[in-house]
Simulated assay, not measured.
Amino acid sequence: MKAIIKAGPARGAELRMVDIPSIGTKDVLIKVKVCSICGTDLHIYQWNEWASNRIKPPLIFGHEFAGVIVEKGCEVPEVFSIDDYVSGECHVTCGVCAQCRTGQGHICQDYKILGVDFNGAFAEYVRVPYSCLWKNNPQVSPELASIQDPFGNALMTVSACDIRGKSVLVNGCGAIGLFAVIIARFYGASAVYAVDVNKYKLDLAKKLGAGYCLNPLETDVHAKIKELTEGLGIDVVLEMAGTEKSFDLAFKILKNGGHISILGIPDKPLMVDFADKVVFKGATLHGITGREIFKTWYQTAAFLNNPEVDITPVLTHRFTFENFREAFELMESGKSGKIVLYPDAIPK
C-alpha cells in the first residue's frame, strides 16, 4: 500500500510502498477514503522540538480519517461489520487508570496516539483498535467525517463553560479556531471576536460569522476590545494560538470573572503573573486536551447532521498522496484552512 512516512529525524516525509498492516484480535483494518492534516502532523513534518522528543521514525503519521472496515479481528463485537463506514478517536486509552475508570479517558494516564505513537492514517489502509471506532452517518461526506477529531477539539473548548449571551474571543484562527467560530455562534454567544496575524484566516473567520476580526499586526487589539466592550473586556477567551503574545493578550482582554479555555500549546514554558492576571481578576482557566470519549463525538455528529450548520468553508484544499509535500507547504504558508488528502484520485 501507499503510505506517507516520517522516515528519519529531519524535515519532510516520504511516500513509500509498504506492507498492509496485519491486525490483532481486537483490531479492524480500514480502507482509508480520505484523511486530513492536523497541526500535529505539520509539527512532525517540520520536525520541531516537540516532534523530535516524541516521534520515533520510521512512522506512518496522520490520525484524522474516514474509511470502511475491510477486515476485523475475532474479538471485535458484532456491532462493527465489514463495509461499515467509520472514523476513529485517535487516543487509545489504557482503560484501567483512575481517569479511564471515572469517565475521563481523554486525560488517561497512559494513552497512545494513532499516527504519533504507532502507525497512523496517511496510508491506503490503517489498523485501529475497535475501542476507538466511530460509525458515521452515511449521509455525511468522507471529508467531513474525517475532521470530527479537530471539530471535537473545538467543540470541547467552546463547551467548557456556558457561553450563551456572552462575548467570546477566538484567539488563533487555525482550523480548530475557525470551527470554534461556527460553534460559538450556534451556541448563542452575544458577540464573536476573532484574532489572528494571518489575513487569509481572518477572512475565513469573517465568512464564518465572526463579527469582529482583528489583526494584532495592524490593530492595538487590547485597546480595540476595551473600546468595543466599554472597558469591561471579554467574557470567554478561547486560546487557540499557543504563543507567548497570544497568552499575554488573552489575560489582558479577559473580563474580571471571565473564563479562558486553553487549547493552544506553547512551544516553551511561559511566565504568567498569576496574582494580577488570574487571582485578583477572579479568572477561571480551563485546560483542554482531546475530546471527551465518546461524549464529544455524539455532539459533533449532531452538528454534522444539522442542515443549519455549514462547516464546509473551513475545508479549503484537496490533494492526493502524491502531492502531499505541496499540501504541507501550503499549510505551513498559512494560506489554507483545513487540508484533506486522498490516497488516490480526488472525486469530482
Rank of each mutant, 00 (worst) to 15 (best):
S22I: 00
F80G: 05
G172I: 01
A51Q: 06
V181F: 10
I262D: 07
H106D: 08
G188R: 05
F247A: 05
V197A: 07
H317S: 11
K56C: 05
G115M: 10
Q99A: 14
H63K: 03
A51I: 00
Y342L: 07
V221S: 10
D235V: 01
I163K: 12
A154F: 10
L42H: 04
L204Y: 02
K335R: 13
K199A: 14
S146A: 15
L232W: 13
S22F: 00
S333E: 12
T40W: 07
H259N: 02
Y125N: 02
K201P: 14
S246C: 07
A210T: 00
Y342F: 15
K207T: 05
F274K: 02
R185Y: 01
N305M: 14
Q99D: 13
G24P: 04
A250D: 03
W50H: 02
L270N: 03
G188C: 08
K338S: 01
N323F: 09
E64Y: 08
N306K: 06
S336E: 03
W297F: 14
A283G: 15
E308Q: 12
S336Q: 04
L178Y: 09
N137P: 10
E143N: 05
G62C: 08
L228Q: 13
L155Y: 15
P313M: 04
A121R: 08
A145H: 08
Q46K: 15
Y212D: 00
M17V: 06
A121N: 07
A210L: 11
Q148D: 09
V70W: 11
V126P: 14
G115S: 08
E49G: 01
A191D: 10
L263A: 03
T157Q: 10
G115C: 03
K226S: 13
T229G: 11
I182T: 09
G282M: 10
G120E: 12
I4P: 09
K338H: 07
K33A: 14
D19Q: 12
V34C: 11
D110P: 03
R101D: 07
V158Q: 06
R11K: 14
K201C: 12
I293P: 14
L144F: 08
L42K: 06
G8A: 11
I346K: 08
T296A: 11
K6E: 04
L208G: 06
L304A: 08
I183F: 12
E14V: 05
V170P: 03
L217C: 12
N323K: 15
P138S: 06
V192L: 06
L169A: 11
K199I: 00
K31W: 11
G24R: 11
G211E: 15
I339V: 15
I265N: 04
V181W: 11
F122L: 14
A123F: 13
P9A: 10
S246F: 03
M240Y: 05
E89L: 07
S141H: 06
I288A: 01
A51H: 02
H222M: 06
I5M: 14
